[in-house]
Design a protein around this nucleic acid. Structure first.
Length: 120
DNA sequence: AATGTGACATACC
DNA sequence: TGGTATGCCACAT
């Protein structure tokens, strides 16, 4: 993908992105959440693509954003190719105790961290 | 200024 | 069951 994203580094005013990052940062180790859940929770239920976009740009933002804990609604590691190397996402997850099999989080239903349920 | 393109999700053929 | 269309929003062209 050809997007340099360099301009994002100046966007300290990006509410949407920041709210996304805020939620992602709250995901505990050993748990995972989804693009859709974050989109809903941040007020734009249909902006899940933007959450993916935010993850892609997350390395340009201050602080640590555990982008590897965000998967799609089936628990598939759709974003793995955007890490430094394709297996890093899985490695990070497994280092937290999240097992991954065929690019899918094992027991995704149990490990799913729903902001609505957890952040009341 | 307008159009295309996504680490997605849903609704509807 | 499976492809297509669309919403969302930022960025590239």
């Amino acid at each position: 993908m050809t997007k340099s994203l360099k301009n994002l580094s100046r966007s300290s005013h990006d509410n949407f992105f920041e709210r996304v990052y805020e939620v992602v940062r709250l995901v505990p180790e050993g748990r995972v959440t989804t693009y859709g859940a974050i989109a809903s929770f941040t007020g734009s239920p249909q902006a899940s693509r933007m959450v993916g976009w935010a993850m892609h740009a997350s390395h340009l933002y201050p602080g640590h954003i555990p982008a590897h804990r965000v998967v799609n609604r089936k628990g598939i590691l759709t974003g793995k190719h955007h890490f430094r190397h394709p297996e890093l996402m899985q490695e990070l997850l497994e280092s937290e105790g999240v097992l991954v099999e065929n690019d899918r989080v094992v027991e995704f239903n149990k490990l799913f961290w729903d902001p609505y349920k957890e952040l009341v």
